[in-house]
């Protein structure tokens, strides 16, 4: 497995999540359905193989361990990420984050406001847990990839 392949596998998963699952999530009535969907999202992201999970990819500041890999396409000015987490709910939330930022230009990514984006998707309540879950730590790490 290479980063290239992972990125290729991640791409259709993300567009599926964006087009199918996010609308479903924002309409889910009870917390049970919401969390079922979140965990389902996490499962859609291809996992980073154990061998590739170098300590340098570990995102600190999470109760659960999470890993981030980054690729920048210079010619097209696009940032791409793959990530993984050992906790499923966190991974689901991170999958949503990834839908929003993957493919962004450097300027777009720098300006990206996670809270605002989650608010627009009616996902604000999930953000309250973001500190503990490491979502913020992951966002900081993603932004650190900007130049």
């Amino acid at each position: 497995m290479t980063l290239d392949q992972l990125l290729t596998d991640t791409k259709p998963a993300l567009s599926h999540i964006y087009n199918e699952d996010l609308p479903e999530l924002s309409q889910a009535k009870d917390w049970q359905s919401k969390y079922r969907i979140l965990m389902h999202l996490g499962r859609k992201l291809p996992p980073i193989p154990e061998k590739m999970k170098q300590p340098s990819l570990l995102v600190k500041g999470c109760e659960s361990r999470a890993w981030l890999m980054h690729y920048y396409n210079k010619h097209q000015d696009q940032h791409f990420f793959v990530l993984d987490s050992e906790a499923r709910i966190v991974k689901g939330l991170m999958a949503i984050m990834l839908c929003l930022v993957n493919g962004m230009s450097n300027t777009e990514l720098k300006k990206f406001d996670l809270a605002h984006a989650f608010d627009k998707l009616n996902l604000k309540p999930y953000l309250s847990q973001s500190r503990g879950s490491g979502l913020n730590a992951m966002m900081v790490r993603i932004k650190d990839c900007c130049h």
Partner: peptide, 10 residues
Amino acid sequence: GEHPADVAEL
């Protein structure tokens, strides 16, 4: 087979 963070969140 589940992470404690998931259980605690639920």
